[in-house]
Design a protein around this nucleic acid. Structure first.
Lengths: 147, 147
DNA sequence: TATTGTTATACTCTATAACTATA
DNA sequence: TATAGTTATAGAGTATAACAATA
């Protein structure tokens, strides 16, 4: 008995950019998740590490804003990175409420290797798109939600 | 005291298409979620309803494949749509294991209204992009993951 | 034996709210 | 009073695994 007598179609949904975006994002997320596992990172901790390296001594609250998540979520994230000795919580003189987050040498090294792995992941997942198309995709995505 | 003495940057991350995709997707997801609430639908139940209308008498297993989720997840989804009288589980003659899913007249009516609302939502969220750019974005997204 | 639908359970990600210590 | 960080809790969304009925 033919298993696929009738192919299921999704024309109703393919007309929506949001549908195509979700499908594409889930593929990226899965492959990226596997890619980062090797470094003990998740998508969000990879992002956090990137922000901390780029903005030394950033506070947890500012990091939360940059990542668009709540401060309570950052605590767990920073705990995770600190436990792995990838970043350190340093005290700020003049304000004992906040921490200055900074990547350790190992954190910088891991970031460098993870960055390369993520580039390889993007080569894989966007193999169907040329360099110009990838750039155009990134540009279009960056303009979403800014009427 | 200037709250934003130093702006947090994310150049390390903006180079990655996946980062831009996540950011864009989360904005779409949030606005779409609010849009669908009015119809008692979630992103996934909206998609399920669309597939069922387009493919009358589809089984739950085939629906699971189309939505790229597990069969167990479809049970909850179909329960939800059936409770709202938007679809019906009909018995299949010749195979008493499976159901033939079909939208009710009300399901079709709700879909039509929801579809219009989702179009309005996309007009809103993609306001910064012209029609041609939206089409290009959709095309590019559909080609992700297909080396 | 394989497939369909089902249930129970667990995991990931994130938000909310209440708290503390500082300012 | 306001802010930074923390904790506990809860809610989506989805996966895994075991199961009954049917093929």
């Amino acid at each position: 008995m033919a298993k696929d007598m009738q192919e299921i179609t999704d024309e109703n949904l393919r007309q929506f950019a949001g549908y195509n975006m979700k499908r594409a994002f889930l593929m990226v997320r899965d492959d990226l998740g596997r890619t980062l596992q090797e470094f003990g990172l998740r998508m969000t901790s990879f992002s956090a590490l990137a922000i901390i390296i780029e903005n030394p001594d950033v506070s947890q609250s500012r990091l939360a804003e940059a990542l668009h998540i709540e401060r309570s979520g950052v605590v767990v994230l920073v705990d995770e990175l600190e436990s792995a000795d990838l970043i350190a919580r340093n005290r700020v003189e003049g304000d004992r409420r906040q921490y200055a987050l900074r990547a350790t040498p190992e954190g910088e090294a891991v970031w460098t290797r993870a960055e390369a792995a993520v580039h390889a992941h993007e080569e894989r997942i966007f193999a169907g798109l040329g360099a110009g198309e990838r750039q155009r995709l990134a540009d279009l995505l960056r303009r979403v939600g800014r009427g």
